[in-house]
């Protein structure tokens, strides 16, 4: 009854597998949303030291920026809180086209 196909795409399962492979891994999690946000609170993006990733924290709008930050978190070790939204000064580059706002927590595993 376990959905094997879903497990293959489950970010937390992938994070554990990558960790077992000896890769450096960071986990990004949507912790707060305002307005119309594309992914619900609790959604994960998992990133490795080379910038490979699985999952999503938005509809693809801000993943690029999160991956960049995650690679820094992997090398430095300190967790970060990121915020994205249309009011953000970086909106032009990585804003959410839906008009919502999200806060993403990025931490290293290990």
């Amino acid at each position: 009854m376990n959905a094997t196909a879903n497990d293959m795409l489950d970010p937390l399962t992938i994070a554990e597998r990558w960790m077992d492979d000896g890769r450096m891994v960071a986990l990004a999690t949507v912790v707060e949303t305002w307005g119309s946000a594309p992914r619900p609170v609790g959604s994960h993006l998992v990133i490795d030291g080379e910038g490979n990733f699985h999952g999503s924290v938005s509809g693809g709008c801000v993943e690029g920026a999160v991956i960049g930050e995650a690679m820094e978190v992997i090398s430095e070790g300190e967790p970060r809180m990121l915020e994205f939204g249309v009011a953000d000064e970086t909106a032009w580059r990585v804003g959410l086209s839906c008009g919502g706002r999200i806060r993403v927590y990025v931490e290293r595993i290990g």
Partner: peptide, 15 residues
């Protein structure tokens, strides 16, 4: 996140 916690979390979810 503690690697041990990730394993524990996944084990609980699988169960």
């Amino acid at each position: 996140m503690d690697p041990y916690l990730l394993r524990k979390l996944n084990a609980e979810r699988t169960a």
